[in-house]
Design a protein around this nucleic acid. Sequence first.
RNA 1: GCGGAUGUGGCGGAACUGGCAGACGCGCUGGACUUAGAAUCCAGUGGGCAACCGUGCAGGUUCGAUUCCUGUCAUCCGCACCA
Length: 793
Amino acid sequence: MSQHYNFKDIEQKWRKYWGEVDINPKDDAKPKMYCLDMFPYPSGQGLHVGHWRGYVLSDVISRQKLMQGHRVIHPMGWDAFGLPAENYAIENGVHPTDGLKTSIANFKRQLKDIGAMYDWDLELNTTDPAFYKWTQWIFVKMFERGLAYEKEMPLNWCPSCKVVLANEEAEGGVCERCKQPTTKKNLRQWMLKITEYAERLLVDLDDLAWPEKVKKMQAEWIGKSHGAKIDFAIDGRDEKITVFTTRPDTICGATFIVLAPEHELVQALTTDENREAVERYVKEATTISNIDRMAAKEKTGVFTGAFAVNPADGCHLQVWVADYVLADYGTGAIMCVPAHDERDLEFAEKFGLPVVEVISSEGILINSDQYNGLTCDEAKEAIGADLEKAGVGEKTTNYRLRDWVFSRQRYWGEPIPLIHCHKCGVVAVPEGDLPVELPHVASYKPTDTGESPLAAIEEWVNVPCPKCGDGAKRETNTMPQWAGSSWYFLRYCDVDNTQGLIGEAAKKLLPVDYYVGGVEHAVLHLLYARFYTKFLYDIGVVDFSEPFVRLFNQGMINRANPATGVVEKMAKSKGNGVSPDEILEKYGSDALRMYMLFIGPPELDAEWNDNGIEGVYRFLTKLWRLVHDNLPKLVATTDDHEKLKHKMIRDISSRMDNLALNTAVSGFMEYTNKATQLAKDKGVDKATLEAMVTMLAPFAPHIAEELWLTLGNSETIFKQPWPTFDPSKAVDDTITMVVQINGKLRGDMQVAVDIAKDNAIALAKEVVADKLVGVEIVKEVFVPKKLVNFVVK
RNA sequence: GCGGAUGUGGCGGAACUGGCAGACGCGCUGGACUUAGAAUCCAGUGGGCAACCGUGCAGGUUCGAUUCCUGUCAUCCGCACCA
């Protein structure tokens, strides 16, 4: 194959051309089209071919939209804060930016190999102070509006490394680095009140052109449920226990109460004789990791010695503590109805607590005094109303969504722009003093107090209070990696603006029309970005409240691991990665682009086949030859050529409209084969070749540019409009109709497209005459342009 | 347990609102061209000698089902004691 076509030089040439000539000028008269990739974290690993999938997809969309007359915004940037860079820096005694510079350069080179039409003028980097100034500005605005608050939160803590761990660093309750068991440590954290936006985040999902799966996942994450808060008095005491339930109708079936181990009343309610057991249980439950807590198969718990009074029927109920009740959902306390709740039943059976049925198999209330005979829905109303009247209950809506722990005890993140003053309290850094830049230290070590390494840099920490001028201290926590990615898509459109987050003209380019990326961001990143956008809408920074009109999740690329034979997600670390560099050397970028599309439906996972790319490479050489071989002997356009051309435009365009790009690629193969065949008999015309090459441009831009030139054109092909077709020219005069007997294929016939029913049936009878002998036709089915079916006995 | 997706040749996959199952490609077989190979081109390629049988499995609706309905199995992904 080595002596065969090598498109590498051609590709180099066109990439250079695109670097010099702007094929996508910033023309505000055209309708805008913002097509965005989820920006990468520039890891030292570099890209493997699996990463190409999303980037090629978004590039095909972008290039086609360009040819369809849009002003396309298609930028790329770097999400470069975060743990890997920091850990690398600590281990190697260097600054995080040192490693990142090389990584970014390498990523950029690899992205350029794709031949994507990124507008590198818009490139951004979340670690650039000019960018994170605005990340900090948004935080200040949230702080000023009461959306940011401080709270003690239990964090994963490694007692031997003396460091706070992210959940993914403490998987299985074990420190990732030293493999010692982790514990929880309470530390002061900054929180963002995303819960204030829960309802809007839920309701607005309806209008998004997103995969249903992602919308469901977000809705589930927000977890809205309707129910009631009900107060249970405590026998002989002043305190009351408030429970949350979605089933107030079952209240008369409540046979005990369970508090979460962290519940604030546990200490107070516990009687002396139960104190030792309760304290031991609470201590154990709050120190084991969540993972172990969930993994425990059997229910555990202890009796506090206290009794609660059921407000509906006055019954006395034992109050227990058990870790199957979650402290941070609802009120951290539940009324237990073992007859109608599996978990409560399991607990009741283990500890010998009573079970009282209150709903019959017909769904009618029983054993419930005055509520007997009501349906569940009626009972919910009636009981709810009575409790409300008595002042011991209220209807409520509960969300599973929690506020967002927004601080990290790390160096490599945006400093939270706050100052702690002994007189004025917590003061935001004034806008004019932003950004609060990270002090550039040559190297540093984590602290052993769990604080950020910034806490040790005294000359940075100690500052005058912006309000009173007294000595004060900077907040030393930094923001999570999500902070920059929650709003970066806004900044691309106005990346050099020093006056504001985004200017008026740039706003018109938003929101993002197409957002392409992996489904792993279905919840966190996409939810945070929606939250930020809604906040910025509320304070008038943008005039839309949803950032991403349309979302597309591309599938993963899997590959058999050469060592084990197991098919799994492609990853360099697993050893089943395929480096684009080798593929490019052998086949070129266009072949890899087309293979990534041809490999399967873009939204599904696909399996990499080492030989698969041969097929698209052969197709490209066939098309190359079709053009070159016929160039000296082009013929005048005939009906045959017209028909081929219009059908081709129709088929490929409609497949692209449906994002069925794998079949769009096979369409190119099909029509190239057909055109090659036609060329042999009757030659080929220029218009057909030009249409083919024009449509190929989004897929194989380098080769398309070159062939466009070969066909005698001078300017870039991307100034060409997307070809259109005439439906009347894309139809055949005669077609093959199928003849069936009892729905089974028995013959076919060449007929005029518009053949009349009677004629078709008569002809069909001749075609299958021998099979109709001695049978009775009970029904004749005629489907225009398709078939004739005889139902016989 | 709950939610979602996917099951079609040796393999990846195609089939728009029910209408010729297997497009397109990989692989494989045979042939041409070559001293030979590579590349390219041509022919063939679901199973079965056939009648026929074939879209995970079992039913149903229909003249006709990969497509619609009911049930069921398998694989993958997400969530998971949320009261």
